[in-house]
């Protein structure tokens, strides 16, 4: 290794939420970490802390992670009171320690929402999102093999909007950042994505009603348009999708032939 930067290390004080299981009372514990390389990702820094804890015969800090490439939606850390930390449109796994300074204190907490109960430490149960998807976030049409190009025309603008909505990785940062713990941005991204595409049309009305019902059943809060979700979203999902879902819901309520 050459160059001074690669040898620079930082000392970081971590204040981390520790909770041994879903029922246990949690508390914030303090860890002093030296030898933090600015090149580490936030999760790699936690790996280093965990290596040390294991060496001391202590329980490592449990946190969700998978791809570490910013595309899977597994990581879910509230870092200094912001979902995924201080950087815009960046998941916690893509947040690097070079954004911090030597001597910084960093608070790390799990997502907080009744609908996302803490399983252990920083790991929360996000299966509420799975149940919202299971209520209608799919198309039942057999897709078959890829059809010929241009046999199913989609307006460029709609394709773009659907693609933007489909960028949602389901991490739950929107819920975590929302002052009301609402899941509107997540649900609306899924509703908008399918309502904009021809494949989504057959189930368009039933989908939005079923998904909103499922969302409400999970105990998320109500959206009051603070728009913190959009600012916290690592994929930059727009609140325009929420307005679209509101329209879709109103339309479906009025035109759907179901009286239930």
């Amino acid at each position: 290794m050459s160059g001074d930067a690669s040898h620079e290390t930082m000392r970081i004080t971590l204040k981390v939420w520790r909770q041994s299981n879903a029922e246990a009372d949690g508390r914030i514990e303090t860890y002093h970490v030296s030898d933090v390389s600015p090149h580490m990702s936030f999760l790699e820094m936690l790996d280093v802390v965990n290596e040390r804890l294991l060496g001391q015969g202590k329980d490592p800090i449990a946190f969700d992670h998978d791809c570490r490439e910013g595309i899977c939606g597994a990581c879910s850390l509230m870092i200094d009171g912001r979902a995924h930390g201080p950087e815009a449109e960046t998941t916690a796994c893509q947040l690097h320690m070079r954004h911090y300074n030597d001597g910084d204190t960093i608070h790390v907490e799990p997502w907080r929402a009744n609908a996302f109960p803490v399983v252990r430490d920083l790991v929360v149960d996000r299966s509420a999102f799975d149940r919202i998807i299971a209520a209608g976030g799919f198309v039942s049409t057999p897709a078959g093999s890829a059809c010929d190009a241009n046999s199913l025309p989609i307006a460029k603008e709609n394709a773009e909007l659907a693609m933007d909505a489909a960028a949602c990785i389901g991490c739950g940062a929107c819920v975590a950042a929302c002052p009301n713990a609402a899941a509107m941005l997540f649900t609306s991204a899924k509703v908008a994505h399918l309502s904009l595409l021809p494949q989504g049309q057959p189930e368009r009305d039933a989908r939005v009603i079923a998904m909103v019902d499922a969302m409400d059943d999970e105990g998320f809060g109500n959206c009051t348009n603070h728009f913190e979700c959009m600012a916290a979203c690592p994929k930059g999902i727009s609140v325009e999708n929420i307005a679209r879902m509101n329209r879709e819901y109103l339309r479906a309520s009025l035109v759907s032939r179901s009286v239930e």
Binding site: G81, R82, E109, A113, A115, A182, G221, H226
Partner: peptide, 23 residues
Amino acid sequence: ENRQARKHRYAVRNNRGKESFGS
């Protein structure tokens, strides 16, 4: 309902400038 939706509050919370004094 919105108060109920997050019974356990954050020890530290910072906004990203979208919420306003009005909101």
